[in-house]
């Protein structure tokens, strides 16, 4: 039996490695290009930069209009994460513990917002945020992204919270804890991993989204993804800088996933396994 298993696992490993190569190859190519000069990129195909250079990165880090894009993106992503967690935690608790009028419909309505195409909301969003004076602020993008990150956050947190036995709540109330004290000192620490995973998902959505972020900003809060379209200049596309900017947008994601790597498997099933 174990022999058959080993043979099978070798073939399995090969399949997995093949897939990983498929995943990594395009990223490798971007990384490779970001260290090349434009002349080398355009002159022909090289698997490794002959003329290794950091110039593309230096361009980005010395030009405020470039690096401010990263700062802007980070700002609204962070705001989105904080807002999402603050409002989603109590709501998820209510969904996981209580039955109330219209609960299922409310839940579905929330979820349907996650499924709605951002393009549908594009125009009115623009006008809504202009009319309340939020246009071109980080808050506008954060709020717009909340529409999509909150439903998912509630869904994930509800899954994690349902895994915590009710007896814990009841014992705490009998011991004289108030709701807020119980929630903050006992309950939240118990679903730490769920909160981490939720933060990860809010980060993920807000960081990768472009359409809304681009429409709701013009100068002050312009995200990096919108700035990247600038590399198309009079002389054609500045491939090297474009690649370097792309590589820099991947790094925050890698850092975030490193922190939640042990919980991410459960989180991906929305706490439902």
């Amino acid at each position: 039996m174990s022999i058959i298993r080993e043979k099978g696992s070798k073939r399995k490993a090969l399949g997995l490695i093949a897939y990983m190569v498929f995943v990594l190859l395009p990223i490798y190519w971007l990384l490779n290009m970001s260290f090349k000069t434009n002349e080398e990129i355009l002159s022909g195909l090289t698997l490794w930069p002959n003329d290794f250079t950091f110039d593309n990165y230096i361009t980005i880090f010395t030009d405020a209009s470039w690096y401010m894009g990263y700062v802007n993106s980070m700002t609204y992503v962070a705001m989105n994460m904080v807002i999402t967690l603050l409002v989603a935690l109590p709501a998820a608790y209510a969904f996981s513990r209580y039955k109330f009028v219209g609960d299922k419909h409310l839940f579905f309505w929330l979820l349907s917002n996650r499924m709605a195409p951002p393009a549908v909301f594009l125009l009115p969003f623009f006008q809504l945020y202009s009319s309340v004076g939020l246009f071109d602020t980080h808050l506008a993008v954060a709020l717009a992204h909340c529409l999509f990150s909150i439903p998912l956050a509630v869904w994930i947190l509800e899954g994690f919270m349902s895994g915590v036995p009710r007896e814990i709540d009841e014992t705490a109330y009998i011991d004289g804890y108030s709701f807020s004290r119980f929630f903050i000192t006992i309950f939240i620490p118990m679903i730490r991993s769920g909160i981490g995973v939720t933060a990860f998902f809010s980060f993920m959505f807000s960081w990768v989204e472009l359409l809304l972020a681009r429409t709701l900003t013009s100068v002050e809060a312009k995200p990096i993804s919108a700035i990247m379209t600038r590399t198309v200049g009079a002389t054609g596309i500045d491939w090297g800088v474009l690649a370097a900017a792309g590589v820099l947008t991947i790094i925050p994601g890698v850092l975030v996933i490193w922190f939640v790597r042990n919980h991410v498997a459960k989180g991906f099933a929305l706490g439902r396994v």
Binding site: V23, W207, E209, S225, M228, G246, G253
Partner: peptide
């Protein structure tokens, strides 16, 4: 990794 790359990238 691919899930965390901005869509335009």
């Amino acid at each position: 990794l691919p899930l965390l790359i901005p869509w335009n990238v």
